[in-house]
Design a protein around this nucleic acid. Structure first.
Lengths: 354, 354
DNA sequence: GTGTCGGCCGTCTGCCGACAA
DNA sequence: TTGTCGGCAGACGGCCGACAC
């Protein structure tokens, strides 16, 4: 896996590129992904982080791994830095966060409830997202642009030309330039991307079922992103370190930072992670202390569907208790068991709050 | 990075595929790479392991990382298991080792010197390795086979045919099958691989400067491997875990295993790692206790050249001392400083023994 | 002995409207 | 409105010996 960051160290921030592409990053991440604000207070769940590593390495956490008595199941931190990144090979979006645990006296001082519930995922308004068809990805032709989307997002064509056509310049998450011939032709008339499209498809290794999205912005830069379909074999374990060592590493890093009140760095990958493990403190406090949860209660939860829209699912709380009592006693991570109403099986026990 | 192992867990051994391709694995790894025998006693250097992670993530180890007082700079272990693997995407070879630290009484019991100095890298005898030319990798043509190599390695052609030709079936490290048309033609006559060659080149993403190697074996299976040229941008950092957490992870895993006398798992990547960090115990004992090292002494050391042959370099010992006195006191890792005779700069301070 | 080139032919890429869902 | 197809023209892939180093 290659990173997109520039400079000598690949883990350095990307500079102003982040600001430029923040919209695009959020669009690619999806509507349910939100990042807490810089400087804000958050709750970090080592268990959730561990789950992300387990999914990424395709290996369950080993029972051999010791627990760190000094590391609580939830750690209140200040978020020093958030930078948005994208995998150089797959364009998968992820965020790098620098966290600093709060000292005991700092925790007391913030007993008042801050209002920051996290920016609610600034989805761009003027964009379109299309799932690619077999014809879109075949070498035989170009890309068929939905009619209304082309009129709304692309710069207007000069209809005095026969046929009306122009060159579009789009930029992906790495700020790479992609040029497409945009033409309005056929019977009936339609918007098509021809020359340049197949280069893009093969460079990004897109297949039917993946999605592309174009964003309109005031500078007319035409940001361009992709969302891959959930292919089962997307797992990319590393041959650098054993998964056991990785689990130990994240725990050790957090435990050491907690003990010395020093900063540590984590990666959050929205697509890989089963659920968010860095939550704004206010959201956490509200969920744990200001919400009455009891067995039998009904509730709703949002999920993203395959067509990248949002849908509500209903569920009933069937139990409350620790997921792993020996290792993580009194953890609020996935402490609520639910039974889902609809027969969409495969859903897991969800997390504490939303 | 994808792994080649099969089954539910990607880190499970590959079964008998290892045995079949052991020759090929060693051929791809190069003549200087040797793996200690299964069950033998070895010395594990956490510092060396850390260096491999640093190179793989392209990030120097952070001074913030704490040291583990319970973890000595060299750990005597029994090697429970060694399996050979290859990266599914790049075909890069690496080994997975399961180590178990020896208890104090076990260490005393092995005070006699075992004779196991490691299998000296069983390089196959009947093989050829060719660095690809621009014409070999261009889409315009096929692969020009060195004349003597073709006669030695490939199954003999039927020279009654005009032109003499046959189909060769080769197998790579993942046991994938590759078919090539082998023909003897042109003026002057030569051996060529035509149909099938370009598919192989593009699938493995070979470029001029990379090498391919064919091995002859008694079963006539024609194992086929690649060695990539040292491209500067080969680094593949992971977006799963911060490099700091990785360093902590490997230290924590070794420290925990040392404290509880339990097994832990590491990956050894010969191409990524600056030097071997799992050494047969006998070799270590011989180097440390049976070799007199003093400042000013002359010595020789083997290096692999770019043409994958072996060459001797001469050097003088200019000093002896700890590389990192505060973190790893009394470590034998890179404790010997040398000045190289020839003006081939860029060499680093070498390691204890060879 | 082998790296690169020009020549040549066949396949595939990629642009077009027709047509149907 | 838009997914897929057949038709077609040009680009590129890929096999060949010539030639030079």
């Amino acid at each position: 896996m290659k990173l997109s960051a520039v400079g000598l160290n690949q883990q350095s921030p990307e500079g102003d590129k982040n600001c430029l592409n923040s919209e695009l990053w959020h669009a690619c991440a999806g509507p349910l992904v939100s990042l807490p604000g810089m400087g804000s207070h958050v709750v970090y769940f080592p268990q959730g982080h561990s789950e992300q590593v387990a999914v990424s390495t395709n290996k369950e956490v080993d029972a051999q791994i010791p627990n760190y008595p000094s590391l609580p199941p939830q750690l209140i931190c200040q978020l020093h830095n958030v930078t948005m990144h994208a995998d150089l090979e797959t364009d998968e979006v992820y965020a790098q966060m620098t966290l600093q645990p709060l000292s005991p006296q700092e925790q007391k001082e913030i007993s008042f409830l801050p209002a920051d519930l996290g920016t609610p995922s600034k989805q761009p308004t003027n964009y379109f997202c299309k799932t690619l068809t077999a014809c879109d990805t075949s070498t035989h032709g170009g890309f068929s642009v939905p009619h209304r989307a082309a009129e709304k997002i692309f710069s207007p064509l000069d209809f005095s030309l026969q046929p009306p056509a122009q060159e579009l310049v789009a930029r992906d998450l790495h700020n790479n330039e992609w040029k497409f011939r945009h033409i309005f032709r056929g019977q009936p008339k339609r918007h098509l991307l021809t020359t340049g499209w197949s280069v893009f498809v093969s460079a990004k290794r897109l297949i039917a079922g993946d999605s592309v999205l174009f964003i309109w912005n005031e500078k007319n830069q035409l940001p361009l992103g992709i969302r891959r379909a959930n292919r089962p074999q997307t797992v990319m374990p590393s041959s650098v370190l054993s998964s056991d060592s990785m689990h130990l590493g994240l725990l050790a890093a957090a435990a050491y930072a907690a003990a010395t009140i020093s900063r540590f760095t984590i990666f959050y990958n929205p697509k890989a992670s089963p659920s968010e493990f860095v939550i704004p403190l206010a959201k956490y406090v509200k969920a744990v202390y200001h919400t009455r949860v009891s067995v039998g209660m009904l509730f709703r939860m949002l999920f993203e569907t395959e067509e990248s829209s949002v849908r509500r699912y209903m569920g009933t709380i069937t139990g409350i208790g620790d997921l792993d009592p020996t290792r993580w006693p009194n953890s609020h991570w996935r402490s609520v068991k639910v039974g889902w109403d609809e027969s969409t099986a495969g859903e897991r026990q969800p997390r504490v709050s939303l």
